[in-house]
């Protein structure tokens, strides 16, 4: 989501209300995606962002359309926060015509280059290495833009994480690394497989300014992101934002979470960001009816997106052969008449 004015002050109720709406849109998208997955309308798997909405929302609120973001496997929320159209995204998840990637990628490869969302990713940490490259392209082209890369806590144990952080510092690139620490690396508690003091300490080891924030507090994320993004934009080099949160759902929607202690989810859900934001808005002058109405509007928008996706047709099978490569594209099967 782009801002008219980057210097817009954080913590203003009208601004936070907009962030609230974005978070509701993400929550509604994730809940309806699960419904449609369970109903058989979505294949593969979906990685939901429920409970983590404040991070993508608060960060992307400070980005422009011309800025790039790179996401991980849990990319729906980042996409919506960056301004991707939920209806095109739902079509992508359902494998229909009009999907953001022409139904070639599905949930895990959600991308919308028209808003600078350079893709979710099925391989952890690859967003980091590609992100520094995108930042290098920005420098070479001399354009006024920055890159933001979203990673999870589990990814801090992959080698490319270190390569990319070192690289970003060496070339003083305009890049913000956002580590969404939801506590779980797939079905393993990340702390149980991680040495040292955590992502902030690891980033600081490269001399990178690194800051920690309550990732379920959208006001706090927005304020810190505004500060760090202004520094990156101003030539301050790479920065690291560590946001503590909790993965309310499993690694994927059908994950039964047998590894999780009974009651943990319910206890941690009390701290989820949308309820906290609603309470803040009410304490800062909003009527409950406005809050409810905004939430309902988000669900209505996503319901309409789901309906539109179900109405859309499936792509022509021959499109499977398109967009592989210019030189030496695939040859279609011949026994059924070939492809366009």
């Amino acid at each position: 989501m782009s801002n008219e004015n980057d210097t817009q002050r954080t913590n203003e109720p009208a601004r936070i209300f907009e962030l609230y709406k974005t978070m509701c849109l993400i929550r509604a998208f994730e809940e309806r995606s699960e419904d449609e997955f369970d109903a058989g309308f979505i294949n593969g798997s979906i990685h939901q962002y429920i409970g983590e909405e404040a991070i993508g929302t608060g960060v992307c609120a400070n980005l422009r359309d011309t800025d790039y973001i790179l996401s991980n496997h849990r990319g729906h929320g980042h996409s919506i926060a960056k301004g991707a159209d939920p209806e095109s995204m739902m079509k992508e998840l359902m494998g229909r015509v009009g999907g953001t990637s022409g139904a070639k990628g599905g949930s895990m490869h959600i991308a919308d280059f028209s808003v600078g969302m350079l893709g979710a990713n099925g391989v952890l940490a690859d967003g980091l290495t590609m992100g520094v490259g995108a930042a290098q392209a920005i420098c070479l082209r001399g354009v006024d833009a920055i890159v933001t890369v979203f990673v999870g806590d589990g990814t801090t144990n992959r080698g490319p994480f270190y390569e990319a952080l070192n690289w970003a510092m060496v070339y003083e690139l305009p890049i913000l690394f956002v580590c969404e620490n939801n506590g779980y690396a797939s079905s393993t508690v990340t702390r149980s497989i991680t040495a040292g003091e955590g992502p902030v300490a690891r980033a600081k080891a490269f001399g990178m300014p690194a800051f920690d924030v309550d990732g379920n507090d959208v006001n706090a994320v927005d304020a810190l992101a505004a500060d760090l993004i202004a520094r990156v934009r101003g030539g301050g080099g790479p920065h690291f934002l560590h946001a503590r949160t909790y993965r309310v759902k499993g690694h994927i929607s059908r994950d039964k979470m047998l590894y999780r202690p009974e009651g943990e989810t319910e206890e941690r859900f009390k701290d989820e960001p949308i309820g906290r934001c609603a309470a803040w808005l009410i304490a800062n002058g909003f009527e409950e009816a406005e809050i409810v109405s905004a939430r309902d509007a988000a669900y209505a928008q996503i319901d309409a997106a789901v309906a539109a996706a179900k109405d859309a047709s499936f792509p022509n099978k021959n499109l499977a052969y398109a967009d592989v490569q210019d030189f030496g594209p695939p040859e279609p099967w011949q026994q059924d008449g070939g492809a366009a």
Partner: peptide, 23 residues
């Protein structure tokens, strides 16, 4: 002419990101 660290993942990954981003 970018003299890089010994970081093959990032040499390749950065090339991909930079190609996607218009270079």
């Amino acid at each position: 002419i970018v003299n890089t660290p010994i970081s093959e993942n990032t040499i390749m990954g950065a090339a991909v990101g930079a190609a996607v981003a218009g270079t």
